[in-house]
C-alpha cells in the first residue's frame, strides 16, 4: 500500500521506556486531584483566617454578636443581626421578583418563541449580565430611587400603610429598591441556566406528553417537572450572587442597621457593611467585628446552599419514587 513505511517512532519508544505505561493517566489524575483538593484547602484556610481575625469579638461577645441588634462602633457595641436580616430579606425579594420572570423567559425562548425571536431575546437578557454592578447602583440612585420614592411607594403607603410591610416614610432607598436592583442583576444567570436545563430535557418527554393529548401548557408542566432540580440549581446560583452582591446594594439599600418589617425602610446587608466600614475601622475590636460579619456571610451562603441541596434531593427522590410506583 505505501512504500514509505515509517520506522518505529523513536520519540514514542523513548517516552515508553522512560515512563510507565499509564504515565499520562497518572499525571492527569495527580494534577486534577491537586487542583481540586487545593480548592478545599483554600476554603478551609479562608475560614481559619477569618475565625482567627475575628477571635477577639467571638470570645468577647459570643452568640450575642449574632442575635444582637445594636451596631454602634463608637461605644464598641456590635450586634450583627440587622445585617443578616437585610441580606436575607433583600435577596429574598430579589428571588421573588426574578425567579418567575427568569423561568418564564427561559420557557418562552425554549418552547414558544419563533426561531427569529429566540436569539435576540437571549442576547438582551445576557447583556444585563455584562453591566457592572456600580452602573446598576448609579442607575439605582438617579432613576430607580426617585421613581420608587415618588411613584411606587406613596400609593402603597397610603392604601396599605396600616400593614407593617408597607409602613413608614418613603425614602426611595430601602429594602425593596435593593431587592429590585438585585432581581435585575440575577435575572440573566437564572434565565441562562434555566434555559440550558430546559434545552437538555429529552425531546421524547415533551413528545410523549403531546402524543397523549396534553395541551402545550400540560406538556410544559411535564417538562418542568423533569427540569426542576436543574432549575433549582439555577435559582441557587442567582441567590448566591444576590447574597454576595455589594456595590449596587450599598448604593440603594439605605445603609441603616435597623430591623424593620417595612419594605420601604432602609436596611443594611452583610457585604455592604464590610465594604463601607472596613477601610476606616480603626480599632482591633472594630476590625474583628467586621471580620466576624464576614464569617456570618460565609455561613449564611453555606446554609442557603445546603438548604437548596436538601430541597433538590427531596424533590428528586419524591419524583423517582412516584415514577416507580
Amino acid at each position: 500500500m505505501d512504500t514509505t513505511v515509517p520506522s518505529p517512532q523513536p520519540s514514542a519508544s523513548l517516552i515508553g521506556r522512560l515512563r510507565p505505561a499509564h504515565a499520562g493517566d497518572f499525571v492527569f489524575h495527580a494534577v486534577t486531584f491537586v487542583f481540586a483538593f487545593s480548592v478545599l484547602v483554600l476554603i478551609a484556610l479562608m475560614l481559619f483566617e477569618m475565625l482567627r481575625g475575628s477571635w477577639l469579638t467571638i470570645s468577647r461577645y459570643g452568640l450575642a454578636f449574632v442575635y444582637g441588634t445594636d451596631w454602634n462602633p463608637p461605644v464598641e457595641r456590635f450586634g450583627a443581626l440587622p445585617f443578616v436580616y437585610g441580606t436575607i430579606v433583600s435577596s429574598g425579594v430579589a428571588l421573588v421578583v426574578a425567579v418567575p420572570i427568569s423561568i418564564a423567559v427561559a420557557l418562552f425562548v425554549t418552547y414558544q418563541a419563533p426561531m427569529a425571536l429566540r436569539r435576540p431575546v437571549i442576547s438582551v437578557v445576557e447583556l444585563l449580565a455584562a453591566i457592572p454592578s456600580v452602573a446598576f447602583g448609579l442607575w439605582g440612585i438617579f432613576v430607580l430611587v426617585p421613581f420608587m420614592r415618588d411613584t411606587v411607594a406613596p400609593p402603597f403607603i397610603s392604601a396599605l400603610g396600616w400593614m407593617p410591610l408597607f409602613e413608614g416614610p418613603s425614602y426611595g432607598v430601602g429594602m425593596l429598591t435593593s431587592g429590585l436592583i438585585l432581581a435585575i442583576m440575577i435575572t440573566p444567570i437564572v434565565t441562562a441556566v434555566s434555559r440550558d436545563v430546559l434545552a437538555a430535557v429529552p425531546q421524547h418527554q415533551r413528545d410523549g406528553a403531546l402524543a397523549l393529548g396534553a395541551t402545550q401548557w400540560e406538556a410544559v408542566r411535564v417538562v418542568f417537572q423533569y427540569a426542576l432540580p436543574g432549575i433549582t440549581g439555577a435559582i441557587i446560583l442567582g441567590l448566591a450572587r444576590a447574597v454576595g452582591e455589594t456595590m449596587a446594594v450599598t448604593m440603594v439599600i439605605g445603609n441603616r442597621a435597623d430591623i424593620n418589617a417595612s419594605l420601604f425602610a432602609p436596611g443594611y446587608s452583610m457585604a455592604s457593611v464590610i465594604a463601607n466600614e472596613f477601610p476606616e475601622a480603626n480599632s482591633k475590636l472594630y476590625m474583628s467585628a467586621l471580620i466576624e460579619v464576614g464569617v456570618l456571610l460565609f455561613l449564611v451562603s453555606f446554609g442557603v446552599r445546603a438548604l437548596a441541596q436538601l430541597l433538590v434531593w427531596r424533590a428528586t427522590r419524591g419524583r423517582s419514587i412516584g415514577r416507580e410506583g
Binding site: 445594636d70 462602633p73 463608637p74 440612585i141 438617579f142 450599598t250 448604593m251 445603609n255 441603616r256 475601622a281
Partner: peptide, 23 residues
C-alpha cells in the same frame, strides 16, 4: 459620639461623597 462611623439617630445612609450628593 464621635468616630469615622457612628450610629445615626435618623435617616438612611449613602456610600461616598457622590452617593450623598446624589441623594
Amino acid at each position: 459620639g464621635t468616630g469615622t462611623t457612628v450610629k445615626w439617630p435618623v435617616g438612611p445612609g449613602n456610600k461616598g461623597n457622590d452617593g450623598v450628593a446624589g441623594y
